[in-house]
Lab assay of single mutants.
Amino acid sequence: TYTYKLTDEEASRRAEDEWRNRGYDVRVRNNNGTWEVEVR
């Protein structure tokens, strides 16, 4: 499981799409203004 911490929502969406396209399960959540993109 990888977790990315990003401050930019758009960057988190791009990361989400990119990993999803590669067949990974992705979750995005906002934690106090930081976007966490979790990849498994």
Rank of each mutant, 00 (worst) to 15 (best):
Thr1Arg: 10
Tyr2Ile: 13
Tyr2Thr: 11
Tyr2Leu: 11
Tyr2Met: 11
Thr3Tyr: 11
Tyr4Asp: 03
Tyr4Lys: 03
Tyr4Leu: 12
Tyr4Ala: 03
Lys5Thr: 14
Leu6Ile: 09
Leu6Asp: 05
Leu6Trp: 09
Thr7Val: 13
Asp8Met: 03
Asp8Lys: 03
Asp8Glu: 06
Glu9Lys: 07
Glu9Asn: 04
Glu9Ala: 08
Glu9Leu: 09
Glu10Ile: 10
Glu10Gln: 10
Glu10Met: 11
Glu10Tyr: 09
Ala11His: 07
Ser12Thr: 12
Ser12Met: 15
Ser12Ala: 15
Ser12Arg: 05
Arg13Lys: 12
Arg13Val: 07
Arg13Ala: 06
Arg14Tyr: 08
Arg14Ser: 07
Arg14Ile: 10
Arg14Ala: 10
Arg14Leu: 09
Ala15Arg: 04
Ala15Thr: 12
Glu16Asn: 04
Glu16Ile: 13
Glu16His: 08
Glu16Lys: 06
Glu16Ser: 11
Asp17Ala: 15
Asp17Met: 15
Asp17Arg: 15
Asp17Phe: 13
Glu18His: 14
Glu18Cys: 14
Glu18Phe: 15
Glu18Lys: 11
Glu18Asn: 08
Trp19Thr: 01
Trp19Asn: 02
Trp19Phe: 08
Trp19Ala: 04
Trp19Asp: 01
Arg20Ala: 06
Arg20Ile: 07
Arg20Asn: 05
Arg20Glu: 04
Asn21Gln: 13
Asn21Leu: 12
Arg22Ser: 05
Arg22Tyr: 05
Gly23Arg: 00
Tyr24Thr: 02
Tyr24Val: 04
Tyr24Ile: 03
Tyr24Gln: 02
Tyr24Asn: 02
Asp25Tyr: 09
Asp25Asn: 10
Asp25Ala: 09
Val26Arg: 00
Arg27Pro: 04
Arg27Val: 15
Val28Gln: 01
Val28Gly: 02
Val28Phe: 03
Val28Ser: 05
Arg29Val: 14
Arg29Tyr: 14
Asn30Tyr: 15
Asn30Pro: 07
Asn30Phe: 15
Asn31Ser: 08
Asn31Ile: 13
Asn31Leu: 11
Asn31Phe: 11
Asn31Ala: 07
Asn32Val: 03
Asn32Ala: 09
Asn32His: 09
Asn32Cys: 15
Gly33Arg: 01
Gly33Phe: 02
Gly33Pro: 00
Gly33Cys: 02
Thr34Asn: 08
Thr34Cys: 05
Thr34Val: 15
Thr34Tyr: 13
Trp35Ala: 01
Trp35Ile: 04
Glu36Met: 08
Glu36Leu: 12
Glu36Val: 12
Val37Arg: 00
Val37Thr: 02
Val37Ile: 13
Val37Asp: 00
Glu38Leu: 10
Glu38Phe: 07
Glu38Asp: 06
Val39Pro: 00
Val39Met: 02
Arg40Trp: 14
Arg40Gly: 08
Arg40His: 09
